[in-house]
């Protein structure tokens, strides 16, 4: 069976799945709107955790939480299920497809055959929609892809039961109940307040303080870890910022797009101005990436230490700008 599902490419997988599932159910919502209402924007440094042998920073909220927040705030209900064994997981998915219900899935990226090889890392918080099954082949709408694709039963099982951090355990989710009309206004305000609270949190590794913490570490790395490791770490920070699914500039551009849409919807000119300001901050993140890439471009051991100081200063400047920004944003709503 094949459900009449409209695939629309998105920058970020979770936003994309939510926006596409909402559209299917008759509510047109943009990707930035999902991201903003779900308070997707964030900065965190996750100490003690290493991925690909380098420290982890994240520019967005925990996997799954964007949809949960979005759902609560606009008043829709979602059903989520995880499974211990693959048979039950498959049976439940097939049941939903029989009922013409497209389903959101959390999967691991490493075994996705349609991904470029170089992008296949053990990252388990990817999202897609399964919208049908034809001759034993699952029809897949992966929001980061331009068009729809497909996976065999075996391939899908492998990615649904990927292991490691954030193991999906066959996780499926879909909306079950909708309000008569989506009340976006209140949801937008809640979403913005939450993001301001996160970004200004008095926690040393979160938000603006987290950015400052990373700047501090970048200064230390070349001496403490050696240039080679420092470059590897720096490269990972940029990769997380510009990886597929960020929409560029560490999600800052998507957030600026959200503020623009929200400003129009709420007839709030301050939000329109703040959208422009966020765009400029996005540009600064990209400048940081350019400068950082100058350092890690040559993998030799002869990088001058003050270059690290330079990129650290860029980050500190971003932190200052974002601090001012989120204080203003808090007052603007």
């Amino acid at each position: 069976m094949e459900i009449d599902f409209k695939h629309k490419q998105a920058a970020h997988c979770e936003n994309g799945v939510v926006a596409n599932l909402m559209t299917y159910n008759g509510f047109t919502v943009s990707e930035p709107m999902v991201f903003g209402i779900g308070s997707g924007l964030l900065f965190t440094y996750i100490p003690f955790l290493k991925v690909n042998h380098a420290p982890v920073v994240s520019y967005r909220a925990m996997p799954g939480i964007i949809f949960t927040r979005f759902a609560t705030r606009v008043g829709i209900k979602i059903k989520r299920e995880k499974f211990r064994n693959a048979q039950t997981a498959k049976a439940r998915l097939d049941e939903n497809l029989q009922r013409n219900n497209p389903v959101g899935l959390q999967v691991g990226v490493y075994n996705l055959p349609y991904f470029p090889d170089e992008y296949r890392f053990h990252f388990n918080a990817h999202n897609m929609v399964v919208y049908g099954k034809k001759d034993g082949i699952y029809l897949i709408s992966d929001p980061v892809m331009e068009t729809v694709t497909s996976l065999t039963e075996k391939e899908l099982e492998k990615v649904r039961f990927a292991k490691g951090a954030f193991a999906p355990k066959g996780h499926i989710y879909y909306p079950t109940a909708f309000p008569e009309q989506l009340q976006l206004e209140k949801a937008i305000i809640k979403g913005i307040k939450h993001t301001c609270r996160d970004m200004l949190a008095p926690v040393p590794v979160v938000g603006v303080k987290g950015i400052r913490k990373i700047a501090q570490l970048i200064r230390k790395w070349p001496k403490a870890k050696g240039v080679k490791t420092a470059n590897h770490y720096l490269g990972q920070i940029v990769r997380m910022q510009e990886e597929i699914g960020t929409g560029g500039g560490g999600f800052r551009y998507i957030y600026a797009a959200f503020l623009q849409e929200a400003g129009k919807l709420l007839a709030n000119n301050q939000l329109l101005d703040l959208s422009k300001e966020m765009t400029l901050i996005g540009d600064q993140w990209r400048d940081f990436a350019v400068e950082a890439s100058r350092i890690y471009k040559n993998r030799s051991n002869s990088v001058a230490v003050d270059q690290y100081g330079h990129v650290a200063t860029l980050l500190e400047d971003i932190a200052n700008k974002e601090e001012v920004f989120f204080k203003k944003l808090k007052k603007a709503i």
């Binding site: 170089e118 490269g235 940029v238 990769r239 510009e242 849409e261 990436a289 890439s293 890690y296 993998r299």
Partner: peptide
């Protein structure tokens, strides 16, 4: 000044980081 989307084939600073990794 209106937000819209555009497809990108890639960006050097990111490609270098990925290649290094």
């Amino acid at each position: 000044g209106e937000y819209t989307t555009e497809l990108s084939t890639g960006w050097n600073p990111k490609t270098i980081a990925l290649n290094n990794a």
